[in-house]
């Protein structure tokens, strides 16, 4: 063990640096993303409360809106496209996607009640 060396947290690694304060342009993309998310939610809410379509079509419609919003938020807020080094975030997002799809899929399987005894 090198005892008296002190290369520690003060070491400068550019891709670890916070860079928010250096942003000079107004973050329009974030504002648009936020507004878009709100609009997609309100449309879903309105479609359901106004019984806009038949229940099955409605389900498919709001599912589509949900996927659109997930994609929007991943792109705008979840750093999907940014990278100042290796794209570590993709692995994490992949894991999240795997678990989410697994949980949703299994939930659908469970809630189908394909049972002879219930």
């Amino acid at each position: 063990m090198s005892v008296h060396r002190a290369p520690d947290a003060e070491e400068h690694l550019p891709y670890l640096e916070a860079h928010f304060e250096s942003e000079t342009r107004f973050p329009w993309i974030k504002v648009v993303g936020y507004a878009g998310s709100l609009v997609l939610t309100l449309v879903a809410f309105w479609a359901v409360s106004a019984h806009w379509m038949s229940p099955t079509a409605l389900l498919a419609f709001i599912l589509g809106l949900a996927v659109a919003q997930a994609a929007l938020q991943l792109g705008v807020f979840m750093h999907l496209r940014e990278s100042r080094g290796p794209s570590w975030q993709i692995a994490g997002l992949g894991l999240g996607l795997f678990i989410a799809v697994g949980l949703v899929g299994m939930s659908i399987w469970i809630m189908l009640f394909k049972s002879g005894v219930s």
């Binding site: 697994g102 949980l103 809630m111 189908l112 009640f113 394909k114 049972s115 002879g116 005894v117 219930s118």
Partner: peptide, 18 residues
């Protein structure tokens, strides 16, 4: 531990395979 949650409600009757 993500794949075991139904054991809290086996008696709900989701079916033998589940």
């Amino acid at each position: 531990s993500y794949g075991t949650w139904v054991h809290h409600f086996f008696t709900m009757g989701a079916g033998p395979s589940v």
